[in-house]
Amino acid sequence: MADRVLSNAERLKVRLAGDKCRPNVLILFVDDGAAQVDWLIKHRPGIFRDLPYATIRQLRHDRGPIHAWHITAIASRDGDKLIQGDNGIPVLRIPSASRIEAPIQSMIVAAVILIDRPAIVGRTVDQIADYATMQTLAVVKPQPSALQNEYASTILSLFGHDAAPGQLTPFDWGYLQGLYSGRATRRTSAQYADMARSVESELAAESKAP
């Protein structure tokens, strides 16, 4: 499963650390995700880092089979991280201003997915790995009512629909390619436009396939 996730990331040209990799993605199969989140809150609160309390509370009360969250960090346009100033206040140094690009970027530095064991019955390893790819590489909050429609299907429906796709769909690839193909400092509107074009391109290619 790990090989499948890594292969997907490589196809998206996501930079990987290789032999110097320090694991920052956890995909855990548990008996009860909500109970596991509750245990982590009490015994391993550091796993949530500075995740907002409202988000942790939502995870704690979510009775679905999937509990996923990301740890993010703010960096400058050039990738410089926050440093502690002389007075103890975090400081982010921005070398120059730009009207074209945002001065900062938000980076995913870690991702955790808890999957209830009963939910994986009948799913393949590739399906689970592709679902994990979407959940780790993008901050997504799939809503059951929007997971299957006439426009496109998505692997995010894996644990909500019996007729879920067997792998990442053209919509999924377009979404991720649009997310990762441009600079992380793109303005939000430009990023959304890139993602929309990428999704449309993948869907168009699918419709022309024999």
Results as ranks from 00 to 15, higher is better:
Val14Ala: 09
Arg15Asn: 10
Arg15Leu: 13
Arg15Tyr: 07
Ala17Lys: 09
Gly18Glu: 05
Gly18Tyr: 06
Asp19Tyr: 06
Cys21Asn: 11
Cys21Pro: 06
Arg22Leu: 14
Pro23Tyr: 00
Asn24His: 08
Val25Asp: 06
Val25Thr: 13
Leu26Arg: 04
Ile27Ser: 03
Val30Gly: 00
Asp31Cys: 03
Asp31Glu: 06
Asp31Thr: 13
Asp31Ser: 02
Asp32Met: 05
Asp32Gly: 04
Gly33Ser: 13
Gly33Tyr: 06
Ala34Pro: 06
Ala34Thr: 08
Ala34Gly: 07
Ala34Ser: 11
Ala35His: 14
Ala35Phe: 02
Gln36Pro: 00
Val37Leu: 00
Val37Ile: 14
Asp38Ile: 07
Leu40Pro: 05
Ile41Glu: 04
Pro45Lys: 11
Gly46His: 06
Ile47Arg: 00
Asp50Asn: 03
Leu51Cys: 05
Leu51Thr: 10
Leu51Ser: 08
Tyr53Asn: 11
Ala54Met: 07
Thr55Asp: 04
Ile56Arg: 11
Arg57Glu: 15
Arg57His: 04
Gln58Trp: 14
Leu59Val: 12
His61Glu: 15
Asp62Cys: 12
Arg63Gln: 07
Gly64Asp: 14
Pro65His: 14
Ala68Ile: 04
Ala68Pro: 09
Trp69Pro: 01
Trp69His: 02
Thr72Met: 14
Thr72Asp: 13
Ile74Asn: 06
Ala75Trp: 05
Ser76Thr: 10
Arg77Ile: 12
Asp78Phe: 04
Asp78Val: 01
Asp78Pro: 10
Asp78Met: 12
Gly79Phe: 09
Lys81Thr: 10
Lys81Ser: 04
Lys81Arg: 07
Ile83Tyr: 08
Ile83Arg: 05
Gln84Met: 11
Gln84Asp: 07
Asp86His: 04
Asp86Val: 09
Asp86Arg: 12
Asn87Ile: 03
Asn87Arg: 15
Asn87Glu: 10
Gly88Lys: 11
Ile89His: 11
Pro90Thr: 00
Val91Cys: 05
Pro95Met: 15
Ser96Leu: 02
Ala97Ile: 06
Ala97Ser: 12
Ala97Asn: 07
Ser98Val: 02
Arg99Asn: 12
Ile100Glu: 10
Ala102Pro: 00
Pro103Ala: 00
Pro103Leu: 00
Pro103Arg: 10
Pro103Glu: 10
Gln105Cys: 11
Ser106Arg: 05
Ser106Tyr: 08
Ile108Arg: 01
Val109Met: 14
Val109Ile: 13
Ala110Asp: 15
Ala111Arg: 00
Pro118Val: 05
Pro118Tyr: 09
Ala119Leu: 14
Arg123Ile: 09
Arg123Met: 00
Thr124Leu: 07
Val125Trp: 10
Asp126Ala: 13
Asp126Val: 13
Gln127Tyr: 06
Ile128Asp: 01
Ala129Gly: 02
Asp130Arg: 01
Asp130Asn: 09
Tyr131Val: 04
Thr133Gln: 00
Thr133Pro: 00
Gln135Trp: 07
Gln135Thr: 03
Gln135His: 07
Thr136Ala: 03
Thr136Leu: 00
Thr136His: 01
